[in-house]
Design a binder for these strands. Structure first.
Lengths: 358, 358
DNA sequence: CTGAAAGCGCTAACAG
DNA sequence: CTGTTAGCGCTTTCAG
């Protein structure tokens, strides 16, 4: 059953008439190699299809890797609890490879705290960073610092506007938000017996976080715009905590407009809206929201929420770490973006998603 | 950055006052250990939370693993092409760990060929087997032989009736078929403006393969049974290749009954039905089918197919191999069943699934 | 029954 | 600039 047919460093060393040390040096551009030796080794390399054994490599470099994760406090929002869960899984998964993951969290309501925490991360000088760049401005300066320090980083959850060219993450892991909005619109249309007033509700969101939600709204509107009749009237509401109890604000919206359907682009906004609909006994209003939070599932089960779209925060986090590890340990290429599937959740399939993500 | 805090075999050897050889012997029940030494080692082990380093283990056991995969010819059915694709990915993924995967395929229309191929596999005496047990009887004898030979195996795609206790796979990877049928029913109901005649179409299926499809139908019917009014009349059709061109048979069904909706529990049956609907200009009939085959996507795009449920054959195959490797190399526990999420596919989200699975 | 030692493929420190 | 060598943690052979 043994069939060691693979080419080892030792083999190519022999073929090139040098020592393994030299081969290793050219392999990693460590310098201190004569032009001639380098040429010789590269020649052999090119005609041998040598591929390093990642296992041995990992054993050989007896080095720990530090990956820093920076994301919002999980206690503040169940959504981020799920992300944290994904990080925890990743931590276990990669422990054998000597990668340590340490998480720093910041306050969703306080951009300052992001800045503070990101500085803390920089001071620790980790080997790589995974971050959910909720705050636009603070994130940008953070990225520049990371780049200056030559620390590779990956973004998850929140994509930063592409036109900003000042930063260059290894990868973005998350949904195509525009298309996500379109999926919601499509489902909305399916459930709507006839045209009518619709609303997009932005609930306790953070101004800086604009991009994330605007894209979803844009997709949602874009879909309906394609119906030339324009019988769908879509209103946007921005309900902030500063302006009083969210429940009350939602109720006011419901009274103001005669809504047939509501799209809520955040996970926590979803159940807040569901609560209001239930309270107002307007459960026949179509409600489409995000994510498998416990409360959202309850409202899905009871029919107040009609569809959820799953952003799979757990998987996002896991994938982000995985790419970082691949980059660090195996220097294998990671994609520019990993755009997750847009998962449609109903009362009939949510369990299959919960069970599987455990 | 180095922080070797992990317990090594060497450490526990020292603590137990024996050599690494002895520790290794008790760790793997290799025998030739005095009762006393064993006791001592186990004592230390129990209070140390020692966990072997999988990397070093893999390097140490310089052994190749053979995993045999047995599944239907991919050329016969695009569905199985996707599975094959998953296998190919797995092959690449695990190559560095010295696991070789060899695939044997059988003829979907010929149970004999399954028997022949499975015998071939047995002769090769692989370390583990991954199989799609499309044929009930042939599969059962195969499983028994595998067990006799002490070869662990995992099932994917097709679950064999649980009441048969004569076999014991490591794991099943696939969908909960009953629930899958319910998801289809739920979507069907959503799209149906009013009650009417529905059909479940079993198209070019193999008699032995009953279980797989009956479960889906069962779920589909079960859902509608819950509406006491019983206004939904569900007919079943079994259309076999032996009885003439499928297209013609489907057309006949369409003429016979005034159908409002059709549920097709196979991937290839889906586009056959779509074709017939298009040909008959009955595209308003709701059609719910399975899987992201090229043709299915086209019909989804053009609106003839309303929803697809994705069984994710690619992922099934990959997961199956992954569990086998975990079992073989890391002897980590694998779950009894990995029931995949029931993914709902629409015109708006299918791309996100295609892109992500690449 | 047990310990010592070689080796898996790669890295990195160290003489020359 | 280059070759040698000592590990990384685990397996496995081989004396004793």
């Amino acid at each position: 059953m043994s069939d060691k047919t693979n080419i080892r460093i030792k083999d190519i060393a022999e073929m090139a008439g040098v020592s393994v040390g030299t081969v290793d040096r050219v392999l990693h551009n460590r310098g201190n190699v004569s032009a001639e030796a380098e040429r010789e080794v590269k020649k052999v390399l090119s005609k041998t299809s040598y591929t390093p054994d990642p296992i041995a490599k990992s054993l050989g470099t007896n080095k720990d890797f530090e990956i820093a994760v920076i994301m919002p406090h999980p206690e503040q929002d169940e959504y981020w609890e799920l992300s944290e869960d994904g990080i925890e899984h990743a931590r276990q998964e990669w422990k054998p490879y000597n990668v340590n993951i340490e998480t720093e969290t910041f306050d969703l309501n306080n951009p300052q705290s992001f800045a503070r925490v990101s500085q803390k991360i920089l001071d620790k000088n980790p080997d790589a960073v995974l971050t959910a760049p909720v705050y636009f401005d603070a994130s940008l300066t953070f990225f520049q610092q990371l780049q200056k320090a030559d620390i590779p980083f990956i973004l998850f959850n929140t994509q930063i506007e592409k036109r900003v060219k000042k930063y260059d993450p290894l990868c973005f892991v998350g949904q195509n938000l525009y298309q996500s909005g379109r999926v919601a619109a499509d489902l909305m249309k399916l459930l709507l017996a006839e045209p009518g007033n619709l609303a997009v509700m932005h609930i306790h969101e953070y101004i800086d976080n604009a991009m994330h939600l605007k894209e979803k709204e844009h997709g949602f509107r874009g879909y309906f715009d394609e119906f030339s009749e324009r019988e769908y009237n879509i209103e946007s509401f921005l309900l902030l905590d500063e302006e009083g109890p969210i429940e009350v604000q939602i109720s006011q919206c419901l009274e103001q407009s005669n809504l047939k359907g509501i799209f809520v682009p955040t996970s926590s906004g979803t159940f807040a809206t569901a609560q209001a609909l239930k309270y107002k006994q307007q459960e026949e209003v179509i409600l489409i929201g995000y994510d498998l939070l416990e409360q959202n599932i309850q409202f899905l089960e009871s029919g107040v929420v009609n569809f959820l779209i799953n952003q799979n925060p757990r998987y996002q986090a896991q994938q982000g770490v995985k790419y970082l590890v691949n980059h660090l340990l195996l220097d294998s290429k990671v994609p520019d973006a990993d755009l997750l599937p847009l998962e449609i959740i109903t009362r009939q399939n949510y369990r299959s998603f919960l069970d599987n993500n455990k």
